[in-house]
Design a protein around this nucleic acid. Structure first.
Lengths: 164, 164
DNA sequence: AGCTCCTATTTGAGTGCTCAACTGTTGCTG
DNA sequence: CAGCAACAGTTGAGCACTCAAATAGGAGCT
């Protein structure tokens, strides 16, 4: 029944596209659920905390956060406000540029991250990697890197940014 | 800097995970933007229209829609209401089960889908497939299918459901 | 019939995201 | 050193999704 969604894709491409979309969405949904159940963490908060924890002085400017998470300044602004209400980050003015703000990970935020990380990583392993061979993992990484490199404003190759 | 997010993953796994997550999110975000720009279609609406268009009589029950799109009954209920307001679907009572409702794709909805599909597919090709070899496509499909098959409540293999 | 449990769906409150203004800074240019 | 475009970030409205509660019909048992 290769009707509407078929267009100019081969059968193989259609299958791959649907599998890729389903796998990605289901996987992210599962991980988000796990994270919110285990750590009471809203989807996306974890990523912000990780990135901050890896930054020098555990601090980053808002636009750097936006870039690192591939999201809009607006989203970062809202999200950091929520994290600040939880006491997980603090905002300090940027010394070198009075327009800017630094989001700083607090000790409390670091602890929340430290508590959330191990189960989360375990879930990534069980849901994503456990069924894949070493070769599959390498192939998947390579292919995704290729996809990334062709997407607008991606920052592909090796892991991008300072987030590694 | 393999700190918090490292845990029990190898370097290769970390790289693959980050590339996969970035590629998937960036790709979906791009396609959603394209779709909403070209067709004024909210993310997710397209998928519903496709599934309805492929169903017998262009009609499906709410729970079937939920299953096919891997989403909650609640989301379907809200989403179909929005599509109904646009005149793209209609709701009729289900003859065999008075609890149920059928969502039926209208001609207007079919036209909207027919207009939206070609550019969308073209975008899938350019963003996802154009940089991949035939072998990459096959590998990616196979790997995603493996991932799917190990995820709870997935319905993997060959394309799942009637959606092919 | 009547009871009870299960399934199908809707509803509404709450929350996070997007998009389009808006405020305040910086730094280039004449 | 004005003037002004570009930049950094916030704000608020609007919308889509989630979760829990509510409605309502079916199915099986006695």
């Amino acid at each position: 029944m290769a009707t509407m969604a078929a267009g100019g894709l081969t059968d193989e491409e259609q299958r791959t596209w649907r599998n890729f979309a389903r796998a990605a969405r289901l996987l992210f949904a599962q991980l988000d659920r796990d994270l919110s159940r285990d750590a009471g963490m809203v989807p996306g908060a974890f990523e912000l905390l990780v990135i901050l924890s890896e930054a020098p002085n555990r601090a980053l400017r808002m636009n750097e956060l936006a870039e690192a998470t591939l999201s809009s300044p607006s989203r970062i602004s809202h999200a950091i406000e929520r994290l600040a209400e939880l006491g997980w980050v603090e905002r300090t003015t940027c010394p070198s540029d009075r327009r800017g703000w630094l989001a700083v990970l607090t000790d409390k935020g670091y602890e929340a991250l430290a508590a959330a990380a191990p189960p989360h990583i375990e879930h990534i392993r069980t849901h994503l990697f456990e069924g894949l061979s070493d070769n599959d993992v390498a192939e998947l990484g390579r292919i995704c890197n290729t996809i990334l490199s062709r997407l607008p404003a991606s920052g592909a190759a090796g892991g991008g940014c300072a987030a590694e």
